[in-house]
Design a protein around this nucleic acid. Structure first.
Length: 105
DNA sequence: GACCTGACGGTAC
DNA sequence: GGTACCGCCAGGT
């Protein structure tokens, strides 16, 4: 069943502080290149999970999922981790991008 | 049981 | 270069 949900949680939970990743990167890491949507959907159920879902943004670095966070929790939390913002709700994804495949366990 | 929607991404026009 | 449409899989109604 939603095994891949757990994998999403596992990957997201391993995102280093001050780093972010994208839905596509996680999806591709799980083997579903076009399943980025599913990753986001998984995180939808992960809002109550002990994972830094705020470190996951879309391919454009936009905080698309901030709507699921109370207030500006997502934005403020990222700023606390020294994440560079190019816009009020868009981070410097190219600078802080973290690929799941690059994790060192 | 069937249909619709949903934290996105890539390709086509 | 920008906009539009289609594709992926699962869950909720």
């Amino acid at each position: 069943m939603s095994d891949y949900y757990d994998r999403v949680y596992d990957v997201v939970a391993q995102i280093p502080e001050g780093r972010v990743t994208t839905y596509g990167a996680i999806a591709r890491f799980l083997g579903i290149t076009s399943g980025a949507r599913m990753v986001g959907y998984a995180l939808n159920s992960a809002t109550e999970k002990p994972i830094p879902a705020h470190r996951v943004v879309n391919r454009n670095g936009e905080l698309t999922g901030r709507s699921h966070f109370p207030g500006d929790t997502m934005r403020e939390r990222l700023q606390q981790e020294d994440i560079g913002f190019v816009d009020d709700y868009q981070i410097d994804i190219e600078t802080h991008f973290w690929d799941p495949n690059d994790r060192k366990s």
